[in-house]
Amino acid sequence: MNVFRLAGDMMHLLSIVVLLLKITGIKSCRGISLKTQELYLLVFITRYLDIFTNFVSLYNTVMKLVFLGTSSAIVYYMRYDRIIKLTYDKEQDTFKYLLLVAPSAVLALATSHVYTVLEVLWTFSIYLEAVAIMPQLVLLQRTQNIDNLTGNYVFLLGSYRGLYILNWIYRFFTEKHYRQWLVWTCGVVQTIIYCDFFYYYFLSWQNNEKLALPA
């Protein structure tokens, strides 16, 4: 494992910690898209089905369990916590699941490497992860007064994707048989989706102003 991959994973973990701290600390999930969180949970479930059959390292197994656990907790809090659920912007979070899930499923069926249930679901998770942030970005555009934690959450998540690309470039040059067009294409698409957000994030940081995305 190289330093980019490790840093990427840590950013991913940190983004989840920031989100959980926000939700449980201030008992509010304002500005957070439940749809994005549920899609991430679906991504983790479909990708990590091999958790007990394909052992890579203790690190991988622990991280998989952490991601499954924390994303379940986030969805649980937003849907069922007596206080937290009241702060969810349900009317604003209108992105249609089907718009993201259906194309991912079709592409997975069309391009899967091998046609086994696990492999098709794994491919599905790669496509779905690339677009799962979209409901969150749409919700951010509609949210006035985005709080710092929400902005930082999306920033950390975007950093994780950027670092994974550096990891792939590194592996491309250091490992002989490292050619993964599907994963790379989806990863690059996913990172491009964040570009607009990054632009405004840095702008607000530079000018010391509150983050606001133009509608």
Partner: peptide, 10 residues
């Protein structure tokens, strides 16, 4: 083969 390699990432 290529998809196997990605399985060591998260």
């Amino acid at each position: 083969k290529d998809s196997k390699a990605a399985k060591d990432e998260l």
